[in-house]
């Protein structure tokens, strides 16, 4: 790589935004490190499609709520700030839910109550309280996106494994060749059921711990 492209890259690396995003993505990936946000998200990981839609919804809610709260941060009175944050988040979640019902009806049927439960997702309130209240809007927005992506990567990873092993499909398309089934391969029914999600998450975190230790 020559100097002309490397220079803006290092300049970019020095910005606060970049450092915050990198932190959210690698060092403090929401699910495994902060144990936050795992509530309510696993139920939609039976299929990749629902997990992706859920991830997009959550990322948008975190990003927009962080931005809105950051813009309001000078006006929000200290003593009612949690309620104000919850109100902003709830409004966005309801709008997201209504949009899904209007334009992605089939998926919203499968997501049922779990979109609504984004309100109690610890990541969203955590970012509002921990970051947006003391940072400018654009950076809060990017922080929300980064945290949303960190969460999405785990959710989509779990959904990928569960759909692949549980139903032999990805995004609804069969991917396990017919010949394998003829040779005696069977879909793992456990993956479709709730215990499968717990075990997959457990193994994910194990893998991550081991990799992080090696890199250190």
């Amino acid at each position: 790589m020559n100097g002309t492209t490397a220079k803006p890259l290092t300049a970019l690396r020095r910005t606060q935004t970049y450092r915050d995003i990198a932190r959210a993505l690698w060092e403090a990936n929401p699910v495994s490190k902060q144990i936050l946000g795992i509530c309510s998200s696993l139920a939609v990981t039976v299929q990749l499609q629902t997990a992706i839609v859920m991830s997009i919804a959550l990322t948008m809610v975190v990003a927009l709520s962080s931005m809105a709260i950051s813009m309001l941060r000078q006006w929000i009175p200290r003593n009612i700030r949690i309620i104000a944050e919850v109100a902003v988040i709830a409004t966005l979640v309801i709008i997201a839910d209504e949009i899904l019902k209007a334009f992605l009806y089939d998926i919203s049927k499968q997501l049922s109550v779990f979109v609504g439960l984004i309100i109690t997702n610890c990541i969203v309130l955590g970012r509002a309280e921990g970051y947006a209240l003391s940072n400018p809007p654009v950076r809060s927005f990017m922080d929300g996106i980064a945290n949303g992506i960190g969460y999405s990567s785990i959710l989509i990873g779990v959904a990928f494994l569960r759909e692949l092993l549980g139903s032999g499909k990805l995004l609804g398309y069969p991917v396990i060749p017919e010949a394998l089934y003829k040779a005696g391969y069977v879909n793992n029914g456990l993956m479709v059921l709730a215990p499968g999600a717990f075990i997959v998450i457990g193994l994910f975190v194990w893998l991550e711990h081991t990799l992080l230790k090696k890199s250190r």
Partner: peptide, 15 residues
């Protein structure tokens, strides 16, 4: 070692 803490809790919950 890598399984201690969060990971083993999740697997226990699964069982």
């Amino acid at each position: 070692e890598g399984l201690q803490g969060f990971a083993i809790n999740m697997i226990t919950t699964g069982l």
